[in-house]
Simulated assay, not measured.
Amino acid sequence: MAAGIIGPLEYSREPPRNPSLRINAKEPFNAEPKRSDLISSYITPVDLFYKRNHGPIPIVTDLDKYRVTIEGLIQNPIQVSMDDIRNLPKHNVTATLQCAGNRRTEMSKRRKVRGVGWDACALGTAIWGGAKLCDVLKLVGLSNNTLTTTSGGRHVEFISVDMCKEENGGPYKASVPLKQATNPAADVLLAYEMNGEVLKRDHGYPLRVIVPGVIAARSVKWLASIKIIEEESQGFFMAKDYKMFPPTVDWDNIVWDTRKPQMDFPVQSAICSLEDVTFTRQRKMTIAGYAVSGGGRGIERVDISVDGGKTWFEASRHQKPGIKYIPDEVTSDKWAWVLFKTVVDVPDRMEIVLKAVDSGANVQPESVDSIWNLRGILNTSWHHVHVFNASQLPRSHI
């Protein structure tokens, strides 16, 4: 464990949070912003960024004593300080982090699943500042795009100071392939800033991993050590969680070893300007939300239907103001979401349906039934919202 960490960790020492967040669990604290708040800006304000935790928030009181150990299947294990990290070239990477359980509540309405009941806002986009992991690993002799070490290391494991009941009270762990960790183009960071400010405790102070384009469970917070290992991490959240099983698998017949840990996130989108059932007296209505895909794939289209999927039209997409969004171009943030907005006429009643297509021609599945899984992860089915024109309804229905 890195020096300077206070223990035992206690829920009585939690940091303050924005009162507008929707709290899905108090201990450990898990919360997301309101839909309309989420899309209020392209870069998500820190206090509105979703909070995903497995235990009390760690406290580092003496940054001068904080160290991260780099060890494992390498020749020269070392400990690095925050000054060592800050002395490396700094990079800013705009990336969307998304919990694999985003939109779980929709999936649980079909069949019961296990996990935090997230709505559609368990994600956010930030400008992460820090050192590239590939530069950090050069300190122990690993060059760019290394596939394996001389001692047989093929994966990089990140170990947190965060203690989790799922790990039998041990630290949170996750890993990525060594070839990804040492690839400069993968933009894997050891981040110490978020939106130009020092990381907040909720988001991993003083140092966290950012793995763009991958489910956020691999972006380990409160980093204590980096370990070069032969196989993927055997921590709970790699070996026995966050794996995608077919609808036929339940808790009686599950065999965890038959599936690889989930990494890239599929194409995803959601309507955030409206709730699941919305009543209105407006003649026109704005439909707005987000779309994002994993692996650095851009968003090629955002398709909207107001008649339940019978007919479709394309919504405009945007990222940074004043810069045209073109998927997979250098002018676009390849690790980040796009926002969309369109204005439609409001009939007596309408079923708004949303789906996105990424630059790899991957499209969201129509039904949640085909992707249902017992952990309720990766619900990327078409997003539905029902709208009723209140002026056309009996008062008893409003």
Rank of each mutant, 00 (worst) to 15 (best):
N102Y: 01
C121A: 14
I70P: 12
L48F: 06
P33C: 07
L97R: 08
A95M: 07
N87K: 15
I85E: 02
K90G: 08
F237T: 01
Q234G: 14
I323L: 11
I215N: 05
P365K: 03
S316T: 15
V46D: 15
I39K: 01
L207F: 03
D276H: 15
F279T: 04
I78E: 11
M285R: 12
A356S: 14
W335Q: 06
A336Y: 03
A185E: 15
L223Q: 05
L21N: 08
K260Y: 05
Y172C: 00
A131D: 08
I304C: 10
Y242I: 15
H91P: 05
F29Y: 12
D250E: 03
S391I: 04
V68E: 11
L223F: 03
P19G: 10
Y42T: 13
L378T: 14
T311W: 09
P347R: 00
E351A: 14
S370E: 14
Q392C: 14
K310Y: 01
T150Q: 14
F236S: 00
I377D: 09
M263W: 04
S269I: 12
S305W: 11
V292R: 04
Q262F: 07
Q282L: 06
N145W: 13
D303Y: 05
A122C: 07
M194I: 15
R111S: 12
S391V: 07
F340Q: 10
K260G: 03
H318L: 11
Q180C: 02
G72W: 04
F265I: 14
N389P: 01
P45V: 02
P184Y: 00
P394N: 13
R259S: 02
D264V: 08
A315F: 05
D47T: 08
E167C: 11
E166S: 13
F29M: 15
A239D: 09
D345R: 01
T280V: 08
F236E: 04
L178Q: 07
Y11R: 06
G115F: 06
V363L: 13
L123K: 00
T148N: 09
I271C: 04
L274K: 04
S332C: 02
